[in-house]
């Protein structure tokens, strides 16, 4: 018997990036920039994570007039558990770690 299929490298990168500051709400475009991924890759991943209850979503409040509210994301409890498992897994590729901001790139702080 085999366990659940390991997520793609890009999914792992998104999960690990969100897990860096699990209490902080993040924006989709900022995740794209941080991970150097296209929106066409990041948004389907965010949708799947939200569908599976691994991601919590909310709309931005207290925004300046004339600007539409942005969608915010952060990991749920099960999402954080998954992030810990992925971070601990030995097969996590180096590229994933780099993309997640672990090497050479400082993650941006958002939600301020």
């Amino acid at each position: 018997m085999t366990g659940p299929r390991r997520p793609s490298a890009q999914t792992i990168a998104v999960v690990l990036a969100l897990a860096e500051q699990p209490a902080t709400w993040r924006y989709g475009y900022a995740l794209c920039q941080q991970l150097d991924l296209k929106a066409g890759s990041v948004y389907p991943i965010l949708m799947r994570l939200a569908d599976r209850g691994l991601l919590e979503t909310s709309w931005e409040r207290d925004l300046p007039a004339g600007r539409p509210p942005r969608h915010l994301y952060r990991l749920t409890g099960p999402g954080r558990v998954l992030a810990e498992e992925l971070a601990a897994a030995p097969s996590a590729p180096a590229k994933t770690a780099r993309a997640a901001g672990g090497v050479g790139r400082r993650p941006r702080v958002e939600g301020t």
Binding site: Y27, G28, Y29, A39, R67, P68, P69, R70, H71
Partner: peptide
């Protein structure tokens, strides 16, 4: 709507 709001930024 989320994507449109991000594009505005």
């Amino acid at each position: 709507a989320a994507m449109a709001a991000e594009l505005a930024q």
